[in-house]
């Protein structure tokens, strides 16, 4: 019984802020329950559909880009020998060594040079780059775990390496792909610092930057109910996705990919 009571008390402590946020997002000014805060939030600034759409667009491009690039790269690192292979692999992992915040200023300048200033695509490309060390390591290990005989049989049957990859290997590494995609989604959906630096037009802000701007006094008195509605709109997709894909999330930890 003591086993459960201490752990339950801790669980309440950890869950309480989330429950409070959900509760207060549903509380009206008069003390009753209402969706008014969400309606208010939908009209904030450029409107919720805009910010939600921006976030979704960036996340979709980031997830797709990360999955495609790391699947191809992981395949190359696991199954092929070519000049510069180890150097490229090390350079990819080195992204982990370089703190995020320190290269965003030059990235801001660099994206400006190629016309991707204030661009959601540019932001997504930066996210793909930051995801690459984890994703590439994860996918390389996933491909290495697949028996070589599987694709060799296909090659003998006349499949090229690309057809072997698409037809045989990709289905075999599906769990790795889901893990990589999940981490890419959580990172791009939630990141605040990169869009803050790389975007300068309010209409291209993703959710975190837009909701944080609710706390800036320039918008008048802070509407705390609306603020928690914003927190919920950001948090609920992540919480649901995590609960459904928990197994894949934990795989990311087990794989040792965090170690880089």
């Amino acid at each position: 019984m003591r086993y459960y009571s201490s752990r339950s008390a801790l669980a309440v402590l950890f869950l309480f802020p989330l429950l409070w946020s959900g509760w207060s997002s549903l509380r009206g000014q008069d003390g009753g329950y209402t969706l008014g805060n969400y309606a208010q939030m939908a009209r904030f600034g450029e409107g919720l559909p805009r910010y939600f759409g921006n976030s979704l667009l960036v996340s979709v491009i980031t997830v797709a880009g990360t999955v495609v690039v790391s699947a191809l790269g992981g395949y190359a690192f696991a199954r092929f020998r070519f000049p510069g292979k180890n150097l490229l692999f090390l350079a990819t992992l080195a992204i982990l060594m370089v703190p995020y915040a320190t290269i965003l200023i030059p990235l801001y300048v660099l994206l400006g040079y190629v016309g991707l200033q204030n661009s959601l695509v540019g932001l997504a490309l930066v996210f793909v780059m930051f995801q690459l060390p984890f994703a590439t390591y994860m996918m390389r290990n996933s491909f290495e775990a697949v028996p070589k005989e599987l694709e060799e049989a296909a090659m003998v049957d006349g499949c090229g390496s690309l057809r072997a990859l698409i037809g045989i290997l990709l289905p075999a590494v599906r769990p790795g792909l889901i893990t990589v995609g999940l981490f890419a989604f959580l990172a791009s959906w939630n990141d605040f610092f990169a869009p803050l630096i790389l975007l300068n037009d309010g209409s291209s802000f993703p959710l975190p930057v837009a909701v944080v701007s609710m706390t800036q006094k320039t918008f008048g008195a802070i509407d705390y109910g609306m603020l928690q509605a914003g927190v919920m709109v950001m948090a609920v997709p992540c919480l649901l996705l995590f609960l459904v894909l928990q197994r894949y999330y934990v795989r990311g930890f087990m794989s040792g990919a965090l170690r880089g």
Partner: peptide
Amino acid sequence: AFFLPGAVGFAAAALLFYG
């Protein structure tokens, strides 16, 4: 339960505590 706060973005968590 112990992990769940980690699924929420850090910016969202900071705003949650702000309120």
